[in-house]
Design a protein around this nucleic acid. Sequence first.
DNA 1: TAAGTGTACTACGAGTGATAGTACACATGA
DNA 2: TCATGTGTACTATCACTCGTAGTACACTTA
Lengths: 118, 118
Amino acid sequence: MLIEIDFRDKRPIYEQIVGRIENLMIQGIIKPGDTIPSVRSLAMELSINPNTIQKAYSRLEKDGYIYSVSGRGSFASNISSLLPGKKQEVLDKLKDIVLEASDIGMEKDELIKYIGEM
Amino acid sequence: MLIEIDFRDKRPIYEQIVGRIENLMIQGIIKPGDTIPSVRSLAMELSINPNTIQKAYSRLEKDGYIYSVSGRGSFASNISSLLPGKKQEVLDKLKDIVLEASDIGMEKDELIKYIGEM
DNA sequence: TAAGTGTACTACGAGTGATAGTACACATGA
DNA sequence: TCATGTGTACTATCACTCGTAGTACACTTA
């Protein structure tokens, strides 16, 4: 099972699926051109409604991760061009954390030290 | 106006208020013992329902930031004992970011460099 | 042709956020 | 004392999102 759902997770199911598939593609486990499980089969496998899967796939297609062909299935796109944007997103989040840390009197060095020791 | 609401913010109003007051206390702008605006006056000032303010204040009291006295008002608690927990929260978030960065092939050094240059 | 595929649509229930209104007990100051 | 302001506790209603459920249609493939 490459894709699983955590019902304790506060995020909506469709968002978990989006994140999981994005992750599998970024890690190269799903490669460009690979077939993505069909809406109905994945719904069956996860015991959730096909509409929920469709919602996730629509989002993935809109964001450029997959492309869907009516009657044939859904396939992984080449996401190499998306990586710079993803990197910037991470840096933006990191910036928020650093500002939050600053609010409670934590110095940059403390954060850097923590990262280094991970 | 120390407290404002951003209606473009996706977070619920009560959560914005909680965050804002926490922030003012952490920064020392609101000091232990200070009076917090009354439920009704803040509701009037922000043009929102008193129940929304009450919900925010209930959360703040539950989390130890303020204490409320029936008939008198709400007051800022001494939050110095809460700081270690807040620091740990920040570090936990930082950890998530680092893992996310790792997923898309970013090295720790890249993050550390970014923090250093902020 | 039959089966599997993506896609679109409506309808319903549950949960949450926010509003609206009412009510009660308490503290304070005129 | 009494009016006012305070926190607190309800109920009711509305809007929105998430998820489920069912149906339908056009397409591709074996």
